[in-house]
Design a protein around this nucleic acid. Structure first.
Lengths: 229, 229
DNA sequence: CGTGGGGTTGATACAGTTCAAGATACGTGG
DNA sequence: CCACGTATCTTGAACTGTATCAACCCCACG
C-alpha cells in the first residue's frame, strides 16, 4: 500500500485521533486489493471478515429478497462500509459489488474490534461515524416513505448537481438501471420520470442532463434539509 | 426517580459497564417526567436538549414532509431514542409523540456528551447501541423497498405474534391508523389488507386477531432473517 | 454488417391512494 | 342503563402511481 492511499485513509474522520501506534497496527494487517467491475465483494447473510474501505472506484450496496433486488447506497471514495456488521460481529444485511474497477482496503475484522477495545479515540470516532451513518439511513427511509418516485429523482438531480460543481449540468456516472434501483423504481419508470421532468426545467441529451430552470426543478422537488444532503 | 426505574435504566446495555460514578452523575442531572397521551416530545429540525428514554408507555417516532406524515418506529420500554442527534449535537431528523400516557427519562444532552468523552465503557456501549440501531433502520429500509404492503403487514403479524407470546393471537395495542402509517400504507389499505389475509390463515374480531394457520401465513409473508426481527 | 445490451416507448394490469359514505365502537351525560 | 355524539374503522368507487411485458431503437463492439 502506497503512502498516497495510506494518507487518504488516515485522513478519514474514523482514524483522525487514533494513535499512530494503533493506526499502524491496523494498517499492517490490512491489504489493498484491486477488483474489476462487477465483482461481488460481500454477500448479505455472511459473517464479516474485513472492514472495507472504498479507496478508488464505485461500489453499490444492495439487498435481495424473493428474487427482487434493490440498491441501498452507492459509495464513492473514501468511504468505509459494513462497519456495523464488523462491530457487532454479526451477518451482513447488505451485499456489495463493484460498479467500476475499484481499489478496496480491507482491514481484518478482529483487528478493528481489537483497536476498538484498546483505543478510546477510535471508539469515539466509531460512535461519530455510526451516528452519521445512522442519520443517512433515516434520511433514505424518509425519502422512500414520504416521496413518490418522480420527487425522489428530482431531489437526486438537485443533490447531484451540487455535488458535480453547481454548474447546472449532471452527467450520469452509473447505469440508469442501477440509478433506478437506488431511487426505488424500475428502469422504465426512471425513463418516464426523466421525460416528465422536462416540464420542470430539466433537459437531457443521452447521459448528460442539464438543469435549465433550477427554480422550477426546486419547486417541483421540494427539497428538505431533513431528508436530503 | 424511584429505585425501580433507576434499576431499569441501569440494566440497559447502554449503561451496562459504565462506572457507578459516571452513571450517578448522569442520573443526578436527569429527570423522569410523566406525559399524557398525544404529547409531542420532540420536533424534527430542533436541536437536542435531552437524551430520551421511554420508561413506561408507548412512543411514536414520525416525520413529516409536504403535509404528509409517516411513522418511522414505535417504541416500548425500555428504549432510548434520538441518540444519534444527541451525540452529533445536530437537529432531530424525527419527531416523537406519546401514544399512551408515558414516563420519559430525560438526560441533558451535554451530560451525555460529557460522559461519552470521559467514560470509555460508555463510549463503547454507544458504539454497540448505534450499531444495533443502524441495523434496525437498514432492515426497515429493506422492508419498504423489497415488499409490498400486504407482505409488510403479514410479517408484522408474525413478529408481533412472537412478541406477544407465541399463542397464535395478536391484540392490536395501537390505533390502526398509526399501525398503517408505521407499515407504510393508508388506514384504508390496512383494512383491506387485513381482510385479504383471511385467505392466508388470519381471522379477526375487532382489535383481536388470530392466526389459525401460521404455516399459510408464513408461506405468504416469506419472512427473512435479514429483514425481520 | 450483424449482434447484443442498455435504454425508450407503448399497452396493460396491478397496487395503492383518495374521497365519500356507511358501520361500528366508545365515552359522556342525561 | 340508555341515548347520543364522536372517534375510528370499514367498504365502495374512481383515480393515480408504478410494475410488468413486449416491441423497438440505438449505438458500441466484435
Amino acid at each position: 500500500m502506497r503512502q498516497a492511499e495510506s494518507d487518504l485513509v488516515r485522513a478519514l474522520p474514523l482514524f483522525e485521533n487514533v494513535s499512530e501506534k494503533h493506526f499502524d497496527e491496523l494498517m499492517s494487517t490490512a491489504f489493498l486489493q484491486r477488483f474489476p467491475r462487477g465483482v461481488t465483494l460481500i454477500r448479505e447473510g455472511d459473517l464479516p471478515d474485513f472492514l472495507h474501505i472504498v479507496v478508488e472506484g464505485t461500489v453499490e450496496l444492495f439487498a435481495s429478497h424473493d428474487s427482487h433486488e434493490t440498491a441501498l447506497d452507492i459509495l464513492e471514495p473514501v468511504t468505509t462500509f459494513i462497519l456495523a456488521a464488523v462491530i457487532r460481529d454479526d451477518v451482513y444485511l447488505k451485499s456489495a459489488r463493484t460498479l467500476t474497477p475499484a481499489q478496496i482496503l480491507m482491514i481484518p475484522a478482529p483487528a478493528v474490534r481489537n483497536a476498538f477495545d484498546r483505543d478510546a479515540a477510535f471508539a469515539r470516532a466509531l460512535v461519530n461515524e455510526l451516528a452519521v451513518r445512522y442519520r443517512c439511513v433515516v434520511r433514505s427511509l424518509k425519502n422512500e416513505k414520504l416521496r413518490n418516485s418522480a420527487e425522489r429523482l428530482a431531489n437526486w438531480l438537485l443533490q447531484e448537481e451540487a455535488h458535480q460543481g453547481n454548474n447546472r449540468r449532471v452527467s450520469l456516472e452509473i447505469d440508469k438501471r442501477t440509478l433506478a434501483s437506488r431511487l426505488g423504481m424500475t428502469p422504465e419508470n426512471l425513463s418516464r420520470n426523466l421525460a416528465q421532468l422536462s416540464k420542470h426545467g430539466v433537459s437531457k441529451s443521452g447521459a448528460d442532463l442539464a438543469i435549465d430552470d433550477i427554480a422550477a426543478l426546486r419547486q417541483f422537488a421540494k427539497p428538505n434539509s431533513l431528508i436530503d444532503q
